[in-house]
């Protein structure tokens, strides 16, 4: 089974891109399933189910979604193998822009959209910097100039990545993208022992453990303060 991890900021078009891509994969007889990681709520699993795509939904609730991802990835890989999938795609939203649910030696895709603004490539850090393929969406609604500037900035942040434009509505580019994903030779039996490409966001403070009161004396553990520029940082 092939394994591909897809991530990207919320509403960047991940689900649309994956749906169109799976259609192209299925035309080639490649059986594909999806694991959708999200925080509090998602309906996207229904979109996959409607297309008869095997899907599992995982909500992280009050946990950091990346920590949730790492703690569950091996189990979902086994789920995919049990179903006899040729390819398993994990989809996770980068909610704090610090996410990077990518695993070494496992194909990593970052989906970002032209509407998010030209400074976004700089803002989203490891999720973009450590991806193998960057998919840029919503190119049909911004000007050609903005597409070019945006793509140039993506390449400055991650010069190694392959950069593609996909239209999530018409599917233009999705077939081509699908040919980059599947590799007949690859068979992932387990991800146990593999490493993440970059550490997940870290936080271990009193508020992680349920504290709700504001005030210095309630702040314990990994606490970081804003530099207000008055010299006492």
């Amino acid at each position: 089974m092939n394994l591909v991890t897809v991530s990207g900021p919320p509403s960047s078009g991940k689900t649309s891109v994956i749906l169109k891509t799976i259609k192209a994969l299925e035309e080639r007889g490649i059986k594909t399933g999806v694991v959708k990681f999200d925080c509090l709520y998602t309906d996207d699993d229904k979109l996959y189910a409607r297309e008869n795509i095997p899907v599992i939904k995982g909500l992280s609730g009050s946990l950091c979604p990346d920590h949730f991802f790492v703690s569950n990835i091996e189990e979902v890989v086994q789920w995919g193998r049990k179903l006899g999938l040729d390819m398993l795609i994990t989809e996770s939203a980068g909610l704090c822009n610090r996410c990077s649910p990518y695993i070494r030696d496992i194909k990593a895709v970052c989906v970002i959209d032209n509407l998010s603004g030209i400074n976004t490539p700089r803002k989203i850090g490891p999720m973009l910097k450590t991806a193998d393929i960057v998919v840029i969406t919503k190119g049909d609604i911004v000007s050609q100039a903005e597409r070019e500037v945006f793509a140039a900035r993506v390449s400055a942040v991650n010069p190694e990545a392959m950069v593609m434009h996909i239209n999530g509505l018409t599917g233009q580019g999705a077939y081509e993208f699908s040919t980059l994903l599947y590799d007949e030779e690859t068979d992932i039996e387990t991800v146990r022992g593999k490493r993440l490409r970059f550490s997940t966001p870290s936080a271990m403070c009193s508020y992680c453990l349920g504290e709700t009161v504001i005030g210095e004396e309630y702040q314990l553990g990994n606490v970081k303060k804003i530099n207000l520029g008055d010299g006492n940082d």
Binding site: G117, I118, V142, S143, E146, R147, S155, A161, M162
Partner: peptide
């Protein structure tokens, strides 16, 4: 041409395009 971020073979101009900056 396929995968370069800095140079694409094709530029597109379509009806729905807007400036967003």
């Amino acid at each position: 041409w396929r995968l370069s971020g800095t140079r694409k073979l094709v530029a597109q101009l379509s009806q729905n395009m807007n400036f967003v900056m």
